[in-house]
Design a protein around this nucleic acid. Structure first.
Lengths: 334, 334
DNA sequence: TTGTATGCGTTATCAT
DNA sequence: ATGATAACGCATACAA
């Protein structure tokens, strides 16, 4: 190309890759030619020669605002390291995840950020070879899975400490589908925290559902039908919590006067809500950022990239207060 | 590679690209070898030889749930045509958009889906060469820009017809930033529809702000401070509408009894809201799907891909009703 | 129907 | 410090 101007292609390549190896004089000459000719190295050729795509798959089970924030962090980190992110929507189909992994094998991308705890079949066997992979936002029990996430059980503890600190004794949990480890962990945290507070646990205090508004709305009604009459609810995510608020209203209960509700995630759309939902914040951007940083190291064959747990934080807003009936503890929340 | 088994690489290449050109017998032989050896064509080599990446940039000014739904449609179409989508977050920086365009010049992607009306500097000059580009969800006035979007002015008409049909006479508009053409079109539609209904227009009936809750909340207060006292509000998006509801509550107004409010977008998080917001639906998934389909054709050098306008639809929920004071028209809405 | 040979635009290894 | 040249793995025009 620019070699037509006296030099060989090798020299051109060098001024771009290792400028110090070339005589300053010719370097400038080449630089100028690059400038005037508007030369850009062909990325495909580079990729083939180096055998790297500088692409990472971002595999989600479904598109959601939660993943969007994670993606934001991923994109930021990717940009810093010269990577781009490939959106891969599995649409709840494990088979499609498999397909994405085959794409990696076909040199379509260098690694994958897996936003789900369910592994594709090909990764399950003990001697299966894993392409560079980071499990994101979801815990996993396979020891080969490097993960970046929060401690869901601990987050549940944080929420429960707040509720107990307010003096609540009748606390229930509305959880997500138990097939996900994160749901199980939140539930476990709920159970542990109850015991830590000297409160009795019973399976009747927990209802499992989906991560949606409807689940929360129905669950709250079910509790009262079953004679449970909680004064506080720990929901497995914000949608469920919002549903619980709606259900409470439907029963003629005021929030937080008659019943306190704590959510999980601290999603952006909560800003538009009244009353402001007390919830547990998950650092979604940071999770994405750290995950991508680790993936880059993994791709570079760094042997000691380890899992990472990011801290959660309670965001106290307006849906929690001391219980109306029973002794109103004056301990500060937390 | 598999050529080590009797044949030449060309044959292998052929069974994958044009199977009919090869003798059924050898075809099977090759297929089986491919199967057993777990052979996958190296995508980078293919890409270099064909000079195509099968990648499309999805350039957004900022990550938002709105774009997420568009992305969903894009991803669907991309998958159908063997493309992948590169997430490119410009972070409100025009310079970054420019950078993404340079990446496609460097053969990093084949085309771009531009989710903003602002063009990067390099595309502005009349003789500038445009790489395959589809402008998505945002209208643009450059004739070179093929766009897939809705007719914002018409959508405003739809909303206003509903309000007028209910008997409202004092209708105001809370708009988004006027630097975007879509905001200007919605505002224009508002103005036109008012005149169509024989209602007087005045600049005082419009407040410009950002696409957020705060804008809506402040605006509603401002209207009353200015003595406007509207009975209905047409908001430029759902967040503004939600803010308007909040502002109305703050003023002691009930929705829809004292004031009707119409949003724009019909975002998913509305499902969690009470009262249900009446709003104009934008077919986000379809927009993305059609845009990507068109981009593929554009990349294939199809000369006659044209712009597309998708229809909007009014979603009547609970925030609109006839005005309390004044004659209550009994015409059916719409 | 199949093989040969060249090109795609870099990087990297030897030479010089 | 620079040039020549062989990979990189496939597609394709041309031969056979």
């Amino acid at each position: 190309m620019a070699a037509a101007l006296g030099l060989s292609v090798a020299t051109i390549s060098r001024v771009l890759a290792r400028p110090e190896m070339v005589k300053p004089e010719t370097r400038k000459r080449v630089m100028k030619a690059i400038e005037t000719m508007g030369y850009r190295p062909n990325f495909l050729a580079q990729a083939l020669a180096r055998s790297e795509t500088r692409l990472a798959f971002f595999i989600v089970p479904i598109l959601s605002p939660f993943f969007l924030d994670v993606m934001d962090g991923v994109e930021q980190a990717a940009q810093e390291d010269g990577y781009f992110v490939l959106m891969a929507n599995a649409r709840r189909d494990l088979q499609r995840i498999q397909t994405f992994y085959e794409q990696v094998a076909a040199r379509r991308a260098d690694g994958v950020l897996l936003l789900t705890g369910l592994l594709p079949p090909s990764l399950i066997p003990p001697k299966a070879v894993w392409p560079p992979t980071i499990i994101v936002a979801e815990p996993i029990d396979d020891p080969r899975g490097i993960t970046v996430a929060v401690d869901h059980a601990e987050a549940a503890h944080i929420a429960l400490r707040h509720l107990c600190g307010l003096g609540h004794k009748k606390i229930v949990h509305i959880g997500g589908p138990l097939r996900t480890l994160s749901s199980r962990e939140r539930r476990r945290g709920f159970e542990e925290a109850l015991r830590d507070a000297g409160l009795p646990f019973s399976p009747k205090l927990v209802i499992e559902g989906n991560f949606d508004v409807e689940t929360g709305e129905k669950a709250i009604v079910t509790f009262f039908e079953n004679g449970i009459e909680p004064t506080a609810v720990f929901a497995a995510n914000d949608e469920i919590a919002l549903g619980a608020i709606r259900g409470a209203h439907r029963l003629g209960l005021r929030v937080p006067d008659d019943i306190s509700i704590v959510g999980f995630d601290n999603q952006h759309f909560l800003e538009a809500f009244e009353p402001g939902l007390t919830t547990v914040n998950i650092p979604r951007f940071d999770i994405g950022y750290q995950a991508m940083k680790r993936l880059v190291r993994k791709i570079a064959n760094d042997k000691d990239v380890s899992s990472l747990r990011l801290p959660t934080e309670l965001i106290v807003r307006e849906t929690t207060a001391p219980p109306r009936i029973g002794k109103k503890t004056q301990k500060k929340p937390m």
